[in-house]
């Protein structure tokens, strides 16, 4: 009973506290760099698309608003043939960013996603792709991955040994 009264008193004390909210849009709030807003696709430090179309973001998306199709270039590098996010369904939960193994998909502090026509909220790859590396500057998936797609010579990755000579039986 006493705690209820205390609660009432504590809440009442907030009468004199300055509001946390601001009068958006006249006054813009500060959004941290890791704020979860509009989704972008970034590039690796070499300027190539980071997205390898592995489909993990689509699989983890709780509202199923990401659809993509993988394609392969002649060197075997995977990329997205199309990459579509339906922002009219997106709940900006950030799970896609957490799932992304290559830091390709990132959420940005841009939250102003308003359209009069819902169709305009369907973003294709060309709308999503930015030219920078986003929040993670140095990571290039193909320098670590075992697959050789022309980014590095085989066996010269960050934790790789020289290719084995399979004709040798020496220990």
């Amino acid at each position: 009973m006493l705690s209820q009264l205390r609660t009432i008193w504590e809440v009442f004390k907030h009468s004199t506290v300055k509001p946390d909210t601001v009068s958006y849009p006249e006054e813009k709030p500060y959004l941290a760099p890791r704020y979860r807003g509009r989704i972008v696709l970034t590039r690796d430090p070499d300027g190539e698309e980071r997205c390898v179309a592995c489909n993990l973001c689509a699989a983890v998306c709780p509202v199923d608003c990401i659809a993509l199709q993988q394609t392969q270039d002649e060197r075997g590098r995977w990329r997205a043939e199309f990459f579509r996010i339906n922002f009219s369904r997106c709940i900006l939960c950030g799970l896609c960013e957490e799932a992304c193994p290559t830091y390709a998909i990132q959420l940005t502090p841009d939250v102003e996603l308003c359209e009069y026509d819902r169709q305009n909220l369907v973003y294709e790859k060309e709308h999503l792709l930015i030219s920078g590396t986003g929040k993670y500057h140095d990571y290039n998936f193909y320098r670590r991955a075992g697959k050789d797609v022309g980014v590095k010579e085989r066996g010269t990755g960050e934790t790789e040994a020289e290719p084995v000579n399979v004709r040798s039986l020496l220990p």
């Binding site: 809440v11 009442f12 907030h14 009468s15 506290v17 300055k18 509001p19 946390d20 909210t21 009068s23």
Partner: peptide, 11 residues
Amino acid sequence: LGLWQDRLGPN
């Protein structure tokens, strides 16, 4: 409610 929850409320 806004006042007590550090918000502005309808304004």
